[in-house]
Design a protein around this nucleic acid. Sequence first.
DNA 1: AAATAACCGAGACGGTACGTCTGGTCTTTTT
DNA 2: AAAAAGACCAGACGTACCGTCTCGGTTATTT
Lengths: 226, 226, 226, 226
Amino acid sequence: MALGEEKRPPARGEVEKRGDVENRGDAEKTAERRASVGARRSEATEAAVLGATAALIAEAGYGALTMEAVAKRARAGKATLYRWWPTKAHLLLGLISQAKGSMPPPRGEGLRGELVAYISDMVALWRGDAGPAMGPLIRQCYAESWSNPDLALALQEERRERWTRLTEILNRAVTRGDLPQDLDLARAKDFLMSWPFYLLMTDRLPDAQSIAQMVDDSLGGLHGMK
Amino acid sequence: MALGEEKRPPARGEVEKRGDVENRGDAEKTAERRASVGARRSEATEAAVLGATAALIAEAGYGALTMEAVAKRARAGKATLYRWWPTKAHLLLGLISQAKGSMPPPRGEGLRGELVAYISDMVALWRGDAGPAMGPLIRQCYAESWSNPDLALALQEERRERWTRLTEILNRAVTRGDLPQDLDLARAKDFLMSWPFYLLMTDRLPDAQSIAQMVDDSLGGLHGMK
Amino acid sequence: MALGEEKRPPARGEVEKRGDVENRGDAEKTAERRASVGARRSEATEAAVLGATAALIAEAGYGALTMEAVAKRARAGKATLYRWWPTKAHLLLGLISQAKGSMPPPRGEGLRGELVAYISDMVALWRGDAGPAMGPLIRQCYAESWSNPDLALALQEERRERWTRLTEILNRAVTRGDLPQDLDLARAKDFLMSWPFYLLMTDRLPDAQSIAQMVDDSLGGLHGMK
Amino acid sequence: MALGEEKRPPARGEVEKRGDVENRGDAEKTAERRASVGARRSEATEAAVLGATAALIAEAGYGALTMEAVAKRARAGKATLYRWWPTKAHLLLGLISQAKGSMPPPRGEGLRGELVAYISDMVALWRGDAGPAMGPLIRQCYAESWSNPDLALALQEERRERWTRLTEILNRAVTRGDLPQDLDLARAKDFLMSWPFYLLMTDRLPDAQSIAQMVDDSLGGLHGMK
DNA sequence: AAATAACCGAGACGGTACGTCTGGTCTTTTT
DNA sequence: AAAAAGACCAGACGTACCGTCTCGGTTATTT
């Protein structure tokens, strides 16, 4: 779920929220009832819109990403567009969510190896080594989040999800005794991610060797961190 | 000098055109001659424009920063505005340059003390503890730099200047033997600055205690860095 | 129809997309179907725009007739304005077309009486004896037509329509034998209209008595014209 | 003298193009590198300004006639331009006055012959048969005169001067007894000129044969005019 | 089979900002 | 003192998007 999407139109796929807990009497009926009559959201349109978004960004940059242009290219009505993606940032988040599955499975051995692999995978995703580059999209999302608290929350959530693997890496290392038992996990993750993030923001994504160096340097701090 | 400002309008610094090449005899006279006749750039207008820019941002946020509004508020013509500040980012850079002098003098003792003082001063400038907050301005500049190479260069230069004091701190520490002789200064500075920068970009500027912790953690990495 | 207005916006008359090619059987049904769905042109806006145009001209003269001012006064968007009236001349023509119906019915007896009545009516319309003065509007239209071939054509058409009554007057006179059988009607009309037109252009619209004199003088030439 | 020019700066003193006819060698040079400056009005500047005016109109039409462009092309300061020609119409009048001398001497025999010759000469001047076309310039002057009383007066004066020859033709005809003794000269002139003027305004300047027909038709009215 | 409800495309609408251009005025330097 | 050069304020120009809306037409459920 992204960006308070549940507040706007009816619901979509999910039906029950809170009150449904009491209505246990007709449970099976609830499950099969649609939220409403009428046509459902068109999946073809959703695909067309996200495709148009990606194409516009790829062809002419973020500056050419106009709600108007997306609607026209996707052959979608502007009302439809605004109904489901009220902001350009929603479009970007949609793209990012699409790409989320493409992160490769964890790999690497030992704390250092796992960290290097993780950061390399992330940088590859940002740089677009296999598929469209996510870096510029993420940057734009952050820029819009500065004036859009909803988006800021969504990005925080996004960060949390994306760092699941990092959390696991660190937890394993603590368990193994490679890192202090009383390590402040949140700060550790910020510390580890801040350098790659900084390079993303200044448009200087590192190569493989630099990533290894970065991990080494950061580990120096990490070992003493509480 | 920021942002290729010298490329656009007339000339300003240069004097010779065609015939002046022969007049090498009176070089020092040439130096004091104006490039051309005609009125000079109005300093009052420059001040009014930057003032209007600051006021608009302070009152209604960056979203309200419109070239149109700046011109109206500064009682300046739009042509004048565009002549000297062809982009909103130019206005922001103008403000940032104005604020550059307000950094307090270096203080703190020892490597750790100096770093804590330096980062604290910078965060205070970003947060606006004494004057207008520079943080949001800087963020916006970065956002625009992603689609404006000129601005990206200008920001790089800006970073370099702002980090003069940091360079001195590190150099002293190396001289004292507090840090390795073969320290890679550029990477060290990036490493040190990335965390505060990351917090700026995610709008979570740290308090005094957190800054001390950050410095401690980073120093752990720094000591082993080559 | 004025000024190629039909050429601009999308399509309007065409219906077929893909599958419609087969449905050629119901041609007359096609005729009444709208070309595309979507909101139609707002008549209220049209009235507001023409009203604003008239008001601005009346209050401050043609010099104050700014597309910007019309839009603001009519509370219409500039895009709307430009969509339907791409030129100031289009606005003027709109006003003139509005006023076209206000010409009184033919009157007068005999060739001379009819001509005097016709020219008097026209001059009254120009001078604004009953309603807004059309003269200045027409003059401005001509001025713009010099650099706008579309407008020139529209004015020619406008002239043709306005002269229908004059054509009838002359035709009746020829039939009665009051004028030569082989009269060149086109030249005769030009000849008759040139004097009032000239006075309009030099801002010296004639009074009733002068009109009678003009008609008498012109008739002298008309009787011998072939 | 035209257009209240005497109210503003000194006077002028009539410039007259002294020997420019001989100096054809450096004609274009005059435009680009003048002796410039000095405490007196420069005749070279006046020539350059009018030349630039004519060139701009010839090359890109009246729409491209900008005070700014004239100044730049004539290498004159805008202040200078405004001082001597406060309106575009002043520039046009300047051009028209320049061309005034180029009317050929009277010719033709008898009232009809003289009239045909006179109108033909005028139409030739308008159409630009020998030199630049004056017709469009005159039209623009009239258009501006509708919102500029000064210019309207100047044009009236202009008309009066230009019609001197016409007055003489008519006077001779009256003396000879070819026209009524009590002919209203002013109305007669208006009557004669209105048709050509009308054709000028509707951009349909007549050929030689049409002119003869026009004169014949008009004479029909003229003979009975009092 | 109807009625109903939500979806969809197209696009007109009122607005607002854009970046450019011109109009006039004023300032500075040169002659 | 007049001329060039040109910076200045003011504001209209025509374009592009914004986000809202209205219009017909299309599915799907509910009655």
